[in-house]
């Protein structure tokens, strides 16, 4: 089962992911913040997490650390704005699998997800 968790505080970003990935056969869970995302992960198992870097309450890097330590098999692709490229690079160093920049096209997203599942 290709199960993906999207953690983003922006509804439009979550919807974009859903509308792009669900028709391609992926099963999605949508979380509006880091805490909610962690709660999902404690109940279900995910192969991939699409994680927004900048969120209120709990930061993307924090969530990434938690995922890395608790569920090391789950891959994380960071979603980032251009201004936080440096942070994205830092995220890669911390163990994120990849990152995509906002605004992304459906093709970019799909490409990144496919790549993550292939390897």
């Amino acid at each position: 089962m290709k199960k993906i968790l999207v953690i983003d505080d922006e509804a439009i970003v979550r919807t974009s992911c859903e509308r792009t990935l669900v028709p391609e056969g992926y099963e999605l869970r949508l979380a509006t913040n880091g805490r909610e995302g962690i709660a999902f992960m404690e109940k279900e198992q995910f192969s991939l997490v699409l994680l927004d870097l900048k969120m209120p309450d709990m930061d993307g890097i924090e969530v990434l650390n938690k995922i890395n330590t608790t569920w090391p098999d789950t891959k994380v692709v960071m979603i980032t704005g251009y201004s936080t490229v440096d942070t994205a690079v830092q995220a890669l160093r911390l163990g994120a699998y990849n990152f995509i920049e906002k605004p992304f096209t459906p093709d970019t997203l799909l490409g990144a997800v496919k790549e993550a599942f292939e390897k």
Partner: peptide
């Protein structure tokens, strides 16, 4: 501001 605009732009492009 730029960062915030990226979110709606993502929606526009996707849809």
């Amino acid at each position: 501001v730029a960062h915030e605009i990226n979110n709606p732009l993502t929606g526009v492009v996707t849809f």
